[in-house]
Design a protein around this nucleic acid. Sequence first.
DNA 1: CCTTAAAGCTAATGGCATTAGCTGGCGCCG
DNA 2: CGGCGCCAGCTAATGCCATTAGCTTTAAGG
Lengths: 194, 194
Amino acid sequence: MARAGLSPDAVVDLALAIIDEDGPAAVTLAAVAGRAGVATPSLYKHVRNLAELNDLVSVRVMNELADRLREALLGRSGDEALRAFMHAYRDYAVANPGRYAAMSQAAPPEGGAQAKAADALVGIVVGALRGYGLKGADVIHATRCLRAAAHGFAVLETAGGFGLPADTDDTYALLHHMIITGLAKPARSQDRTF
Amino acid sequence: MARAGLSPDAVVDLALAIIDEDGPAAVTLAAVAGRAGVATPSLYKHVRNLAELNDLVSVRVMNELADRLREALLGRSGDEALRAFMHAYRDYAVANPGRYAAMSQAAPPEGGAQAKAADALVGIVVGALRGYGLKGADVIHATRCLRAAAHGFAVLETAGGFGLPADTDDTYALLHHMIITGLAKPARSQDRTF
DNA sequence: CCTTAAAGCTAATGGCATTAGCTGGCGCCG
DNA sequence: CGGCGCCAGCTAATGCCATTAGCTTTAAGG
């Protein structure tokens, strides 16, 4: 028994490899153990159970995405920062559709690492919007809209929801345009119908 | 054996009941059979397998959502139609979070009922945008953006992604405002950076 | 060396999907 | 009215997966 030398991080690495190759649904303790060259129950020495593994994967992916976004935002501000954010967000989702999906599907309510990573991500979105001079609750509203737009687009694009032949780059440009112009014109009053 | 009188539709009904009560993850053939008062393998007389049941559920939900949207759009046009669309879309997702999630998670590539229902839904979105005088590919781009925004918001809201205390109605109003203004100002040229 | 904790293993359980093959009730045709 | 066939339901069996329990071995450190 040559000692596989596993660790929680190593287990997550293997899970990510499976996700990249066969999608999130293929992540099973048996599959991970197979890659590790280890019997399935051995994984329990590193991970509490499958649910925890999924959480760890989710956190890892969120942090990875956060890193990409932070890097994209470095030294940029205003419209340029927003454009860089959206570009980087979409690029990550398209380049890593499995990971992106794995991130989304994790259970939300938790006070642990999951929530911390999500908060960090939200903080980055807020950062991308700095420079638009938003105050108070408007920051929250704009952040939510940006998340909704970016996530919605990413889901549709990575899930193959765009069947028609039109260029998705142009679509993304329109989405970006909507956010920009919507943030520029603060008009918000009679819209309270909602 | 009193003849349970099942049918594919009845099986889907039971699955929907489970989804409404315990979420999409609880939909298992064993659970459905339990509700039907039938042994698990009996379900295979009505449904090819679990995957097909999920597809049928997805189609049913898409059609249900499509009905709500169509009804909301009746007799409306322009901004009013768009507002009604978004309102109805969000209302459905919030009122039926389990069903909404079940719809999204189904496998996309197919030439069958799944694709037909999805196309119908897209057609409704296109209809909601009629009146903005969009031509050619712009129709597609606007449709995709509207879908992305509505879906992204619905996912975030139903998954509890909005942790902060700000009013989600106000956020939705901003999202609506972004779409309106973005459609109004056709500016799209240098954005080709994407 | 020898101890000990961690890392692995095997065995066992229970849930689930799925397949095969049997059976009985009901509609329909004569 | 009686028989026939089909269809819906059943039981049995298989295989995969997660998870638990308890044993064994490795390797690190005194």
